[in-house]
Design a protein around this nucleic acid. Sequence first.
RNA 1: GGUUCCUUGGCCGAGUGGCUAGGCAGCGGUCUGCAAAACCGUGUACGGCGGUUCGACUCCGCCAGGAACCUCCA
Length: 491
Amino acid sequence: MENQFVIYNTISRKKEVFEPLVPGKAGLYVCGPTVYSNSHLGHARAYITFDLLFRYLTHLGYKVRYVRNITDVGHLEDEEEETGEDKITKKARLEKLEPMEVVQMYMNTFHRNMDELNVIRPSIEPRASGHIIEQQEMIESILENGYAYESNGSIYFDVEKYNKEYNYGKLSGRNLEDIKTNTRVLDGQSEKKNSFDFALWKKATPEHIMRWPSKWSDGFPGWHLECSAMSTKYLGEQFDIHGGGMDLRFPHHECEIAQSTASQGKEAVRYWMHNNMITINGQKMARSLGNFITLDELFTGNHEVLEQAYSPMTIRFFILQAHYRSTIDFSNEALQASEKGLERLMTALKTLDKLTGSKQSTVNVSELKENCLAALNDDMNSPIAIAHLFEGVKMINSLKAGNETISGEDLKELKAFYETAVFDILGLKEENSKNTQGNEVLEGAVDLLLKLRQEAKANKDWGTADKIRNELNELGVEIKDTKDGFEWSLK
RNA sequence: GGUUCCUUGGCCGAGUGGCUAGGCAGCGGUCUGCAAAACCGUGUACGGCGGUUCGACUCCGCCAGGAACCUCCA
């Protein structure tokens, strides 16, 4: 049991041992972004969380098929409004672009941001617009099974009927009666039987640009449908893990369950995983609340709440230092703490490279390794894993100082483990603070000045030595004296 | 209003019925011509009030404060 990978399954509200449907293989579906705006910190949290899962499953030896969609068919901003307009169409109108130009633009940004965060691209990244036929087929099977109805060219899912045989609300822990009493107020002269019914196919209004022909009407698929259709296509009627943000639990994932069950008679997903939100000053960060920070803003520091720029790896580390099921509160202080902590970890890795083995070990490498992996096995407890890695940092520094010794064999194991844990599993990478590469003149000039400073120091000409240091500092060159010379970097 | 959850030391953030989480900051030290950086050492916290228990920060109840979902959202 201790050596098994355990994940918290939202639907059972328990931690469960992960046992894949097909031994040695894991199927993973994660709800991707709707590309109508820049990626923000919340996206980073979600996709880093599932990147960790992808990496960890891979590390455990599974052959993982990771499917993460792009929602490029805008769902309606307000279904009740006559002018029903979807987000992408609206954005396209405002920016005077084709809807697909909007999609492409923000998808490119999303990909670039994810690359910067060292988030591995999924195995398949299907787009909703490319799977209209699959979605229509799914609608047909739901209609055939009697769990949907047509109304004025649109198709709606009949939640009430579905609920008679199955349990609508099991994922999010609510029952239909509650939903009924709580939503009745909003009920207008809708073309839906019940306000809680959701669209499978929506007839397009004249101004709606994104539309596809169907036997029911020229229109577009309902939002919840794409995930059901595409996960079925690429992972099968049943698959292992479905992930996404906590906010998608209801109604999105609830509807997905209903759709799969209604079309195929059984549920598709075996383990549901949900990452928690990022808060800013204790409140959820969301586009709709207008308090979100985009990733580009974070990376450049170009936002009024940011005291400085934060590198992609700082963001990644910051996110990994909290458990994925907890909310994480944004603050400059917290981010700066992560930045320094990460630097310390990375410095230790460099130190580790330079260590040499002795005859005997006074340190326990395998215990460290086991603790770290045990934490990851326990529902991907990355903060605990990182805590153990910091214990290892202390170990490495003690080895460097000569207070502890390590055998050649243990050293080899320790190096291999840090490589695996830090780079492969946590997905961190070395970041050049500022790239001086390609600027040989600058490098040569600074090196020359610092050599002159060395000479001045040798002559005890402190005035000159300090002058060089201070003035370079003002120009943005950070100087670190070392035992046998100096190191420098651009601030 | 309904459902669910949270409240930990200066800040962030884990975890457990009795045993030091960890990071950052602070403080002390090592190093250094001075400094920076780096490294070492250091803090005994768990919203309030009751209850269960030999023992609770951890379990139960109540109260206070906060959050998420119930509408698009990662």
